[in-house]
Write a protein that binds this DNA or RNA. Structure first.
Lengths: 340, 340
DNA sequence: TTGTAAGCGTTATCAT
DNA sequence: ATGATAACGCTTACAA
């Protein structure tokens, strides 16, 4: 059925060892043998049994991703982009990506433990870091190979790729301030997430520095989805003194906010300004188009993938700490006069 | 470093064989030995080396997904949902999902060949089938285990999960006809895709049966994304006698169509009706909300995953051909008066 | 230049 | 009830 080294060896009247060496282009095999072996292998349609190779090499050439129970959903566009970046990068290095889901388990460390112990993967890609992330702590303790998309609050040294949310938030608040807004709200996700934490911190600081309204009611936490954004916005609109501008943690939330505003009969971009984070494709085709802080999701994934490949193959990581600068994309949702 | 059977065997003064049997709860091992072995294993933090198990068992317990070069993108929401369904179902059966990308290669069969030959996976999940799909042909020829999300035009017998696009399209055209539309356009994806083919066939037939305008100009092919929908709609709006209703192959395309209409100064839901396929979350929060043919993406993935698990574990597939009925979700984009 | 033998960690077969 | 032995397919000392 399936072709093995033994089959080739029999055919060319050599030992399995010689065949193996010939296929690996070892110097100590005669050119004739090498050519013969390669020819025969090709003809027989030989493909090495990677499982056997892995057992021998004690490497799985596989990167694991355990989807955390607190999201992101595979159906979130920006996460999909990041995933594509990782898949492309590690596939280019001959590695596989193994996806599993944490399900409803609150503590994911046993899953990581299990996959390390059973030598299922060479390293992990960790997404959606939390401020004090037990996964990161565990992986560092174990000396496991991993790359995170996101930082933690502790001053631990581990390879990561992240976005400078503080910078992004600052430029967004400044933009809204310049447009004359004094009362800016922040519709945010679960603040245990490091990204959200940074956004929030920077929001509070920027608002204070610019002397804007710093009413704590203006910060509303919700689920990181359109529905979460929608509901949070409803809360905001029901306040005695509603905000004139709303920033959301993600574009999906921002689209929910826009939706809620429009359902209130408000015109987004004039009656109320709305902005998000990510720059998903929909941001550009929404009506009005959505002002946002663009994050290079694909590139982040790609970088993480390259770092993981280096790690898995024992090469040093050239830049273990990458902080990408996001850029403010001004569109109609904060400035309806804008002609795109 | 890592604990193996040998370590346990040494510790409990038994052979590796006995330890293995004890851990597998074989009947022919004494209760004392069994308990001792299990206790020791737990204490040492033993986890079986899956690579070794796989080499021995000649099974990888892994399902492969090779992302076709013609999409879908990982960032498409409906595909993400389906992927989640597969991951959940497969993980529940103790299997892994291996993702790789076909890159720019026009013919993917070598990739399948390579993964079969190297025994990397036990089976494949095939997505986005084409009318005459070389991947399906190849996998059938090879006798490989796989489940497809989508059918082909040939009368080949293979396990699949698909949606009854024809039915969905018919109900959509009927709905628009009842609203008084005589000139309905279809903004479609690459018609080599079986799903698109079925939609198109049903569109033409429904239009003809209902006696509506069957101008071939009303069918415009474009990229299956918002931009593709946007551009195709621009073509439609520039026609001498524009359509009064536009159906798109996917919700993303439909959102692009809505965008283009709005940029033309048209009011979607009154000046022009727009409808899509999928029912992604954004369909419900778009403005106006989007009429669509709902497809149970997560459920499709889940079913495919269950079938794959059965296949991989040598169990028979109870229902190898599943055709799910989509349902028409009427919203404002075809009927602005509608209060959701 | 080639072959022999051992080993990766596990499971299955056959003795005892 | 337990253990020796072989096997899964491959790589790599070491020997010839």
């Amino acid at each position: 059925m399936t072709v093995t080294l033994k089959d080739i060896a029999r055919q060319v009247n050599r030992s399995v060892t010689t065949v193996s060496r010939a296929l690996h282009d070892c110097a100590d095999v005669s050119p004739e043998t090498r050519d013969l072996v390669k020819y025969t292998a090709a003809q027989l349609g030989y493909a090495p049994n990677v499982v056997a190779q892995r057992l021998q090499k004690q490497r799985t050439e596989t990167i694991g991703l355990i989807l955390p129970h607190h999201g992101p959903r595979l159906s979130d566009p920006s996460f999909g982009d990041m995933l594509t970046g990782v898949v492309d990068a590690i596939a280019g290095a001959g590695l596989d990506l193994l996806i599993s889901s944490a399900g409803d388990v609150p503590d994911e460390t046993p899953l990581y433990r299990q996959r390390i112990g059973s030598r299922r993967v060479d390293g992990f890609w960790v997404v959606r870091t939390r401020c004090h992330d037990p996964r990161i702590r565990y992986l560092i303790e174990q000396g496991a190979a991993f790359v995170a998309c996101g930082r933690v609050m502790e001053a631990w040294d581990f390879p990561y790729v992240d976005v400078d949310y503080k910078h992004g938030m600052r430029s967004l608040v400044q933009h809204l301030c310049q447009l004359g807004h004094r009362r800016i709200a922040f519709v945010t996700g679960w603040s245990d997430l490091t990204s959200v934490h940074h956004q929030r911190q920077s929001f509070v600081q920027s608002v204070s520095e610019l002397g804007l309204d710093d009413d704590p009611e203006l910060i509303v936490e919700g689920e990181m989805s359109q529905h979460g954004g929608y509901r949070a916005a409803q809360v905001l609109f029901s306040q005695r003194q509603p905000a004139t501008a709303i920033i959301a943690s993600t574009d999906l939330m921002a689209l929910g906010v826009m939706s809620a505003a429009q359902d209130q009969g408000l015109e987004v971009g004039s009656d109320v300004a709305v902005a998000g984070f990510d720059d998903i494709p929909l941001a550009e085709t929404a009506h009005p188009t959505l002002t946002t802080v663009r994050q290079p999701a694909y590139q982040m994934g790609q970088l993480a993938g390259q770092m993981l490949a280096a790690l898995a193959q024992g090469r040093p990581i050239t830049r273990p700490h990458v902080l990408l600068e996001p850029s403010l994309i001004i569109r109609q949702s904060t400035n309806l006069d804008l002609w795109l």
